[in-house]
Design a protein around this nucleic acid. Structure first.
Lengths: 194, 194
DNA sequence: ACCTGAACACCGTTCAAGT
DNA sequence: ACCTGAACACCGTTCAAGT
């Protein structure tokens, strides 16, 4: 499960400290300047050389995946809240909002997630979290379909794309307070059984 | 109407030639490498210095707007084809596809268009074409609403965002042959009157 | 008035040298 | 084994010098 070190027993103290400070700093920079922020600035702000950052996280996606892992707990909290919802259609709706919020955590996050969702190759570190999100979406979707509240032709992947698109619209700044609900209404009316 | 020169009478021959070759080269590079392509490479390939490109098109958006103007004729062709469609709902549907195709001409085009659609300021050269597209969308929408085929709460801007999102999904590579029609179906079912 | 190419700043990525 | 900072390559943007 550990993605650092060469399989040895005891990871050196400075290594785990560096990894932690890099992740923490990256999280702040992503929050402030979006996922396209300068990695050089992250390294400098974390007090490490650029090569150290690259050793820990070979690609920007790897760093992003590491940061997102810190945020995954919040999603579990949302899921436990949704578990208390009796109506399957309402549960699906709330999960869609949770997805949308999750995708909106950092500016520019939707794009790499979309790319990772396409290429199912394990080379991309974002593929795994994406697949998990799609699986969860399929779960809520199936429940709603079993209750006869959602059309049978709807797929979990479609809803994943839809939620991601909503976050992207928010990310670009388009989509004011009136247009976003309008879009949501269109999507919801589109998949719900009349 | 002319956006080049200092309002003088006769633009110099090399100026118009440079502008033409820059636009043509940029069009090819956008097509091959997306709208985020290297402007330096465009200038070099066009046989001009980088400063010449900047003089003609001070921002990447200005260059993009110039290139898109070349493509605007195709959109007019689509409109004339749609004019032959009797059913207002079908006309709207076809216009949505035309929009989606237009947004898909270059990889990465949806994003700057979204930004331009938000900031209505005339500083962004893409604002004008965006507003025109939204106006046209409102036209087809109003017709369909007048025919009682589309919900009253739907707005032209919402459909503009939806078509742009579809193009964005295509642009990222996600959205295979099954998921894109699924999303379209969701959106169409969402705004159509049952 | 316009063009040119050099110059500057910034960033991603890698490598030789340290500990 | 890991870290460091210098080094390289690339690109956007501007400026002094040309015509």
């Amino acid at each position: 499960m550990s993605d650092d070190g060469a399989g040895g027993r005891k990871p050196r103290a400075d290594v785990v400290r560096n990894r932690a400070i890099i992740l923490q700093t990256a999280q702040q920079h992503f929050q402030l300047h979006g996922v396209g922020t300068s990695l050089e600035a992250v390294a400098k702000d974390a007090g490490v050389g650029p090569a150290t950052l690259y050793r820990h996280f070979p690609t920007r996606e790897a760093l992003l995946a590491g940061v997102l892992q810190l945020r995954s707990e919040e999603l579990l909290v949302r899921q436990s809240q949704i578990a208390a919802v009796a109506d399957a259609d309402e549960a699906l709706k709330q999960w869609m909002r949770a997805l949308e919020d999750y995708f909106s955590t950092y500016s520019g996050l939707p794009e790499p997630l979309m790319v990772a969702a396409r290429e199912r190759e394990p080379g991309n570190p974002l593929t795994l979290p994406c697949e998990e999100l799609i699986r969860t979406t399929e779960h809520y979707l199936t429940e709603a379909q079993r209750a006869g509240q959602v059309e049978d032709w709807v797929k979990g992947y479609d809803l994943f794309l839809a939620a991601n698109s909503m976050a992207w619209i928010k990310s670009t700044g388009a989509g004011d307070e009136t247009s976003l609900p309008g879009l949501r209404k269109m999507i919801e009316n589109g998949y719900r059984r009349p």
